[in-house]
Nucleic acid binder design. Structure first.
Length: 112
DNA sequence: ACATTGACTAATT
DNA sequence: TAATTAGCCAATG
């Protein structure tokens, strides 16, 4: 299988592993996926922007609203939709509910 | 091969 | 605390 497909799958899988009410940042995902690919002998991809690119393209079937930037804000393009989903999953929010409370909601694979 | 762009981040103002 | 700037990685034209 090709490396670019691996990257795509790795990002999507990780995104789908995020439990409801929790979130991950683009940067964290990029680091985890990068390490995973290196362990598999693939090329380093590192790059929060690449993660965003993949999620943007992923479309349906992926809980993209559980992935936010370092400030805790969901994508500006679908901000209202994301906030709706986040509220529905009882994700801790701050600043008038515009951003996610990262100190409380931030999650990563080992924190299961 | 060069320039532009994007669901980013960290540092600076 | 919010807005701006510079750095970053890969895809695209």
């Amino acid at each position: 299988m090709r490396v670019d497909d691996d990257y795509l799958e790795a990002v999507l899988d990780l995104a789908q592993r995020i439990p409801p009410g929790r979130v991950m940042t683009y940067g964290t995902i990029a680091e985890f996926v990068g390490d995973q690919l290196v362990a598999d002998g693939g090329r380093r991809r590192g790059g929060p922007r690449q993660v965003g690119q993949v999620l943007a393209r992923a479309g349906g079937g992926v809980p993209w609203w559980r992935v936010v930037n370092a400030a805790g804000s969901p994508p500006a393009s679908n901000l209202s939709r994301a906030l709706t989903e986040l509220q529905r999953e009882q994700t801790p929010l701050v600043a008038a509910g515009l951003r996610v409370d990262l100190t409380a909601a931030l999650w990563w694979p080992d924190s299961d």
